[in-house]
Amino acid sequence: MKKNYKIRILDAKKDSDLLFKIVEHENEVFGEATVGNWNIKPFAKYGKVFVMLSDDEDELMSVIEVLSSFDRESAYVYGVSTVPKFQKNGYAKILLQFVMKTLKEMGIKKIELTVDMDNFTAKRIYEKLGFEIADNLDNEYGDNVERYLMRYLVK
């Protein structure tokens, strides 16, 4: 069932409660790979944390954390996730399209992310949005953890 939603960029101070809800959500989804309580506020302060919230209840639906380079020419999408009860409805794709548009407006020329080689669903979404596999990364998030580096060149 599709829900009405709103998209926001979170503020490190004003959105503290929501930032910690994101950490709780990511602990369930990513386990050890979560952004974590110590890092979520710096992500919001020095990067960007984009969220999709249900329009009626302000319930977290999907989240994307982004860092950018010092020269502001490239950005790295650290995490993309959707709360399990909202999965398989296209919300992460919608949010990612918003993020890509926002980054383009900021002057970003290259967007990169990594994806687990076995995460065929995510890889397919990224490819449909124009991302291409740029490299295979060994031991990126620990011993014997292989990931694809995917890259989108902003047009």
Rank of each mutant, 00 (worst) to 15 (best):
L153F: 05
G31T: 07
G36S: 11
V51N: 07
T34N: 14
V115P: 11
V35T: 13
K104V: 03
A134N: 09
T34C: 11
L19H: 07
A75D: 01
E57V: 08
L60C: 07
T102S: 15
R151C: 12
E132H: 09
E127L: 10
L137D: 08
N89R: 13
N119M: 08
K13C: 00
W38Q: 15
M106V: 00
M100W: 00
K128S: 10
M61E: 03
D55M: 03
T121C: 06
Y5M: 10
I64A: 03
L153M: 10
K45S: 04
L53E: 09
Y78R: 06
K6R: 15
F30V: 05
E105L: 08
A44M: 03
L10E: 12
V51E: 08
F98Y: 14
K123Y: 06
F43A: 15
K41W: 08
Y76H: 13
S74W: 00
P42Y: 01
F86M: 09
N39G: 12
D138N: 13
V49H: 14
K21H: 06
V83E: 03
L103M: 04
K101A: 10
G47V: 01
D116L: 06
S62Q: 01
A44W: 00
K93F: 00
I111T: 11
V66L: 00
M1Q: 09
F131I: 05
A44L: 03
M150D: 00
S81N: 07
M61Q: 03
Q87Y: 08
I133V: 15
Y152N: 06
L53P: 10
G79T: 15
L103N: 02
S81E: 03
G130R: 08
D17P: 02
K3Q: 15
A122Q: 07
V83S: 00
N4S: 15
S62I: 01
F86A: 14
K14Q: 13
V49R: 09
Y141L: 10
E32F: 08
I125F: 02
F20V: 05
S68N: 12
V23D: 01
L67E: 11
L113S: 05
V49N: 10
D118L: 13
